[in-house]
Amino acid sequence: MLGCRRHARLLDKSRDAELSTREALFLANHESRCERCAALAEADWGLSVLREQAFPEDLELSPQFTANVVAMVRVDRGRERVSYWAPAMVGATVAAIAVMVMLQLFSRANAPAFTNSPVGEARLDRSAEPPAFPNLDRSSDHK
């Protein structure tokens, strides 16, 4: 029917602002002629019911609400601090390992070569005379 769209627009407007007399008259007029729009206008009451179903402003919260949030924030900050320092810690550990490996390699390079067999050879020369030992026996002096 002619005017249904205008009716819908004005019905909407009436929820946000006061309608002019002319607009209000148009609504009443149209609703008397159009059954569908009259029904919709009546259903506007549903939107008022919806508003009445809003939770109260002094909605009771669990007594632990704030304490829970503060605890969650504290844990989060701790995690954040760890994740902030983690790259630096990993970097420092890697650097320390690198320094130790380099020191190890450097000290090995300068050390004498180590083998299990001696460089020189020891031999017993049987052809030579046995060394003469001095006689330390004191009894022969008294004779």
């Binding site: 939770f55 109260p56 402003e57 909605l59 919260l61 609400f65 704030t66 989060d76």
Partner: peptide, 30 residues
């Protein structure tokens, strides 16, 4: 908190779920 939980409760139509969401919202905001 009151305003935030009330808004969440109106949207979700569940005040206990609204408290959960509001707590998460605070955490995320901080």
């Amino acid at each position: 908190r009151n305003r935030l939980v009330r808004t969440a409760a109106n949207i979700l139509r569940d005040r206990f779920e609204a408290e959960d969401v509001a707590q998460d919202a605070f955490l995320k905001a901080f």
